[in-house]
Design a protein around this nucleic acid. Sequence first.
RNA 1: GGCGGCGUACCCAAGCGGUCUAAGGGGACGGUUUGCAAAACCGUUAUUCGUCGGUUCGAAUCCGACCGCCGCCUCCA
Length: 493
Amino acid sequence: MGLKLYNTLTRKTEEFTPLEEGRVRMYVCGPTVYGHAHLGHGKSYVSFDVLVRYLRYLGYTVTYVQNITDVGHLTDDADAGEDKIGKQAAREHKHPMAIAESYTRSYFEDMDALHCLRPDISPRATGHIPEQIELVQTLIEKGYAYEVNGSVYFDVSQWPGYGKLSGRSVEDMQAGARVQVSEEKKHPADFALWKKAEPGHIMQWSSPWGRGYPGWHVECSVMSMKYLGKTIDIHGGGIENQFPHHECEIAQSEAANGAPFVKYWMHHNMVTVDGQKMGKSLNNFITLKQIFKEGHERLSRTYDPLAVRQLILQSHYRSPIDFSDAALSAAQSGYDRITEAVTGVRKQKDKAPAGAADAKITEQLAGAVEKFVAAMNDDLNTSIALSVLFELVKTANQVLGREETTAGTLEAIDGMFRRLGGEVLGIVKEEYPQAAGGDERLLDHLIGMMIEQRRTARANKDFSAGDKIRDQLAEFGIVLEDKPGGVTTWRRK
RNA sequence: GGCGGCGUACCCAAGCGGUCUAAGGGGACGGUUUGCAAAACCGUUAUUCGUCGGUUCGAAUCCGACCGCCGCCUCCA
């Protein structure tokens, strides 16, 4: 049984078969870079990162494209609105491109911290203006779009498939329209492909229809086609983009190409904070940087990026997730438990007696892989996949307590941690800082000296002196642990 | 107004017709270990899955009603 994914288009969980054997073309809607990435971005990109990692684990060659939206579009589809990037540029007294640049870097920094693999291609919207104009032109030529007053709109009445992704009919939309409909449109559901630039609009380009800028759905269509082809395997994004964004993408792409746009549409659910919706316009959002190092009034402390990743993976990508200090704290504890088991295994590996892996353990590991793969195949059940990792942690800790444990056994367990926990889930690191770089080595030596002093004191039954050393180190976030056999180890709290 | 989701132990969360007297994590409480800690290990912590009905030999899982949360429909991940 192979991988099954829930396809929003068909509303069913389907067997995944790529268009081309062994190869997957995948596009995920990227961020608009006018601010630091927040928890919502975290959930989104961790979810799809795991998909990419798992597809690769299964042996597929994946081409992963994720755009960077560096041109703010409209505040809505109905009026000229404000350019989000332009607005931020005015606020920071910088050029819009400087805003886009600095937040793009910030975004990658945060994604790296979350162990999200970089996409193969991160195309910028502003780098694809000619292609976007071309698409609009094609749509006009084919009779799917019309120009009014320097703006171009998609003519929904010419495209009967409109609404197939979100399950809406054009009539419903007309009835439920809450936004002021532009008078330029023939039909309220028509959407902008190209907008005429208002005098103050900084980001604008020349087009056959005069100075203007692209509508907010065109870039994804264009960049997806350019780098992945007319029809791709997977297009991912947030559930809030199902409509109108993805619906419009389908309409304009399929109308222009006469070919299906996407085989599998995947949508992840939203994030709440303390039980409430988190949105940019609500100003109650927590940025990743705040969680990782700056702090936030709703948080009692900062958290490890990978603890955040773990929290995200603890629930299903199609379920909403509520971030709270308690949830983060629990995830941090769980993450620490995994980390300690892994580092414990790696340290012990070098000291353990040589020998082949224990047969029972080998069997257990094989069972773990089976369970893990079955869970991931079931529309990425990362919650169960994680539970497999925790079972592995238990096994590792049990084995670590035994003297007869061989290097082979530990090697086998470590291999499993690396493959399932590292390669696929991305929460087990290749290397942990302790005993790695120069500063860490120095630190290890210094703490080693303290440990030695404490050992001497304790040997002389001077426990208060020994405890003092332990307490002092604790103030700097260093925890000492006396292991069986008189060995003392240290770790960061 | 339209559409969709959710309600499982103290908290988070998986489960989607029998293997459920319901994974996993956090927390709490016992025990082992320890000079004391910490960590780890062992054990305990839902005979029950919002409520009430129904379908079925059998339901947390399907159907209906009700109660309570939440999200989308507007740039947003």
